[in-house]
């Protein structure tokens, strides 16, 4: 792998440009779906059907004055947005959106991605903590409380398919349902874990009904209350990319992700589409189909998240802790047991 190729990987695809572009598209989609659910139209006049709206927002924020409160810790205040963006961005590089394997994939990259996806929450907590305003502090403590609520169910839910596939590598988990013919039905088996993962992801993204740390009517802007200008822009971009990475991760581990490429002919299937075309397509066409398949699955996950956001009221911090330990965690344990049982019987 030469240096130019690596640079291309990091900067263009599946790196920075692709991640930013696709995640702003997802934000637009999210806003549109949300607006349509509320009988509104959402952004309309920024580009085609307002598709450039998130980009306009970010460009505008980048061009604005950047205020740092006098009481805040200057360095930490500036460092947190960059840290969280770097973390999600790196996590995105491990996703197999490029090829059957991402260019830097290795056995155990699932753990790394999960770990990297936790960093934004900590960064957000510290960002709120260092900006020293009552709302930021309150928001920051809520970020952390919420983290303890959703993180364990999320891990457990994501580990279920890993155990099923017998691997800690995202790409192997992703191709597992397609590698052995007739095994696509492991997807419905993981339904409970999928639901738990979606809910936990929503909590990770801090969106309704789990937008407790940023509850506008309670703590104003939460940890981001004091942020403005460029730093806010970075946080927004980070949130978008987090949504993309999270949704793509769920799409990979639960929905078969990229699917298997026609490698030598017998492992021929690419996601759901692959079941139909996989046997006949190879090379570039198969690759494109795989990419489209994965992106469609990611979009589907985001669509689910948007619907969930539109259909619920915000719950309280004590309610989310109770909810995730009383329901989400036992559900994921139950799912885990089902999978173990199936494995023990040799069914999969």
């Amino acid at each position: 792998m030469n240096a130019l190729k690596v640079a291309l990987y990091i900067l263009v695809y599946p790196g920075f440009l692709f991640q930013s572009g696709f995640s702003t598209f997802l934000e637009w989609l999210d806003r549109k779906v949300y607006a349509r659910m509320q009988n509104r139209r959402g952004p309309m006049y920024t580009g085609w059907a307002g598709i450039l709206q998130p980009i306009a927002d970010i460009v505008k924020l980048l061009s604005k004055e950047d205020i740092v409160p006098a009481a805040a810790d200057q360095r930490a205040f500036a460092f947190m947005p960059i840290l969280s963006l770097a973390a999600v961005f790196t996590a995105g590089l491990y996703l197999p959106v490029w090829h059957l394997r991402s260019f830097n994939s290795f056995e155990g990259d699932l753990i790394v991605v999960l770990y990297l996806l936790t960093i934004p929450s900590f960064a957000l907590f510290l960002a709120g903590w260092f900006s020293v305003s009552p709302y930021s502090l309150l928001g920051a403590t809520r970020v952390l409380t919420q983290l303890f609520a959703y993180e364990v169910p999320f891990f457990m839910a994501v580990l279920t398919p890993a155990v099923l596939a017998g691997s800690w590598q995202i790409s192997k988990i992703a191709i597992f349902p397609w590698t052995v013919a007739g095994h696509w039905w492991v997807i419905p088996i993981e339904l409970i874990a999928f639901v738990v993962a979606i809910l936990a992801l929503q909590a990770k993204l801090e969106r309704v009904p789990f937008d407790i740390p940023e509850a506008e009517t309670e703590v104003v802007g939460g940890p981001l209350t004091e942020y403005s200008g460029k730093k806010l822009a970075i946080f927004r971009l980070q949130k978008d990319i987090l949504m993309y990475v999270g949704a793509a991760l769920v799409a990979c581990v639960f929905l078969g992700g990229f699917g298997a490429l026609p490698q030598g002919g017998d492992q021929a299937s690419i996601g759901v589409l692959g079941l139909v075309f996989g046997g006949y397509l190879g090379g570039v066409a198969g690759l494109l189909l795989g990419v489209v398949g994965l992106l469609l699955k990611t979009t589907l996950v985001v669509f689910l998240l948007s619907t969930l956001r539109a259909a619920c009221a915000r719950i309280r911090i004590d309610q989310i802790v109770r909810f995730s330990w009383r329901y989400l965690a036992p559900w994921s344990v139950a799912q885990f047991l089902i999978v173990l049982l199936l494995k023990a019987k040799g069914a999969v």
């Binding site: 509320q38 009988n39 009517t217």
Partner: peptide, 16 residues
């Protein structure tokens, strides 16, 4: 009231 608890969809529909 719906807005206060973050239920913006009800908020929007009622106001419509």
């Amino acid at each position: 009231a719906a807005h206060e608890v973050g239920f913006d969809t009800l908020f929007m529909l009622v106001w419509r």
